[in-house]
Design a protein around this nucleic acid. Structure first.
Lengths: 113, 113
DNA sequence: TGTTGTGTTGAGTATCAACTCAACTTTTTT
DNA sequence: AAAAAAGTTGAGTTGATACTCAACACAACA
């Protein structure tokens, strides 16, 4: 069952017992903005704000980032670093890898060095 | 020696013996826009326009995309598809892989299936 | 019951991305 | 040297992104 960005944020926030106002002020945005985002009345925040929210809520940022369709500047950096990295991702796309397979690749990464 | 997006585009275009006006009209943008981009007076075009330009110039799109800092919608798709893919890239970032290593990973990808 | 905390809504704003259009200059060709 | 082609520049436009601010609603608890 698919959960939107808004639903996901709302669920996490509630599970941590923190109000929209508190989350918003810690993240440096208006609380009404959080409300709208949680109800999918506005698009997800910027990658940077999503990362802040994740830190405040103490969840891995990949969770919300992946639901947002936004790309962090760190990831942009690595894609800027080499055409080969982009090519790798394009190849990977055609294989439609599962989460488990990505994890396998992450493990393999360590063996590379 | 580093070449900016603009320099790269200009060099490729000239090597193909095609004018700004011709490139622009084929890509569906104004020629003056190409001029400014080539001289780095404007930021690189959108990922989609970069891909068009690459096709017209008959070069792999990764070349210009990597210099642009832009991310194609295809790549965004795969990052939206799983947090594990994002995690993989973040891990890879810390290793600061070389082009050769990325190519190695691309080859490995095929063995995965 | 009223006031305090929490969530929702509408309308508006600032900044940026990705360009266009018109005028001009420089270079190349004949 | 004149004309045509190619390139440059400034100023402006359009739409999206990423929000804010003020007003209101609702719920709960003292």
């Amino acid at each position: 069952m698919y959960m939107s960005f808004g639903d996901t944020l709302k669920t996490i926030r509630r599970s941590k017992g923190i109000s929209q106002r508190e989350l918003a002020s810690k993240a440096g945005v208006d609380f009404s903005y959080i409300s709208k985002v949680e109800n999918d009345r506005l698009a997800p925040p910027s990658a940077e704000t999503i990362i802040k929210l994740s830190q405040i809520l103490d969840v891995p940022s990949e969770l919300l980032l992946s639901k947002s369709g936004k790309v962090s500047s760190e990831i942009k950096d690595i894609l800027s670093s080499s055409p080969e990295a982009i090519r790798f991702l394009n190849e990977a796309r055609q294989l439609n890898l599962t989460g488990k397979e990505w994890e396998f690749l992450t493990d393999n990464l360590k063996k590379l060095r």
